[in-house]
Nucleic acid binder design. Structure first.
Length: 272
DNA sequence: GTCCAGGCATGCA
DNA sequence: TGCATGCATGGA
């Protein structure tokens, strides 16, 4: 990958296996919106970004090299060799088909707090509605980091709310989960950076102790927010996919189950 | 009106 | 340990 500066923009050349629509709108992150010019705008780690693919290059508008190194390089998982990983995953015929059809899905390395709250909201819910709840949450309680763009609210900010405030943005019965999680993180009873530094098994146990977090939400948070790419979340869609794997997951997934999972998830939502 | 969505807590056996 | 049930909300 080559990084060039053009006035205030940053240009990434030679990035392999990155489709903006497939990655930013495939149900792992809920805050990216496609713009009329085909670019994508969103906020992560309290930074606003507009990114567009042009002739195979990626243009990051008004982005400094410092912000790229501090946030976006890791957020887009740019140091991982997806081309090589996909070649290995394609030893499985179904994944080979999905990768051919949907090449360019990456696993985003999101903020642990945002990912955890987002996937608590995701339970027994559909993606369109999840996006709406999170959008209202950010607009009401986040900071405006660019015009009309809001950061994800901190645990301290949400901890100061009442459960009824969270019900008012449409969170439904999950409002009480968000409230207690915010209280626990704000008070320091739960330390997410500590969990991030743990081995997978311990991190998973710690997340499963949280009120409102079960195995599915824990696996999603671990995969998308805690950088455990070997996690394989199973939701109602993946249960249907697993009928194609009666003998368990194939050997070629090993170590990168989460990437295989995201391709299969996308395939399932479009084909089952 | 019913069914479903990136499920989980709770109660009960 | 495993299974049944209730849960908020909005779109199909």
């Amino acid at each position: 990958m080559i990084i060039e500066q053009r006035e205030n923009d940053l240009i990434l050349k030679g990035v392999k296996c990155l489709s903006l629509p497939l990655t930013l709108d495939c149900g792992e992150a809920f805050r990216w919106e496609e713009q009329e010019d085909g670019s994508w705008s969103g906020v992560a780690f309290s930074k606003f970004l507009n990114i567009k693919e042009e002739n195979g290059d990626f243009v990051l508008k008004n982005t400094s090299p410092e912000d790229f190194e501090a946030v976006w390089r890791n957020y887009f998982d740019l140091d991982r060799d997806y081309a090589a990983i996909c070649e290995r995953l394609k030893r499985d015929p179904l994944v080979a088909q999905t990768i051919d059809e949907y090449y360019g899905i990456r696993i985003l390395n999101q903020d642990p707090w945002e990912a955890l709250v987002s996937f608590v909201i995701s339970q027994q819910n559909n993606i369109k509605r999840i996006k709406g709840i999170i959008k209202r949450l950010c607009e009401a309680y986040g900071d405006e980091v660019a015009e009309g763009a809001y950061s994800f609210p901190t645990a301290e900010r949400l901890s100061a709310l009442e459960v009824s405030d969270l019900e008012a943005i449409g969170a439904g019965y999950r409002a009480k989960y968000i409230k207690r999680l915010a209280d626990d993180v704000a008070s320091g009873r739960i330390d997410l950076s500590e969990i991030k530094a743990m081995e997978l098994d311990d991190a998973k146990k710690a997340l499963l102790d949280i009120y409102g977090v079960g195995i599915k939400v824990a696996n999603c948070a671990l995969l998308f927010g805690f950088q455990f790419v070997e996690c394989f979340p199973v939701d109602v869609w993946m249960k249907r996919v697993l009928e194609y794997y009666p003998d368990g997951l194939p050997e070629c997934f090993k170590g990168y189950e989460g990437i295989a999972q995201q391709y299969l998830f996308h395939w399932a939502r479009n084909n089952l």
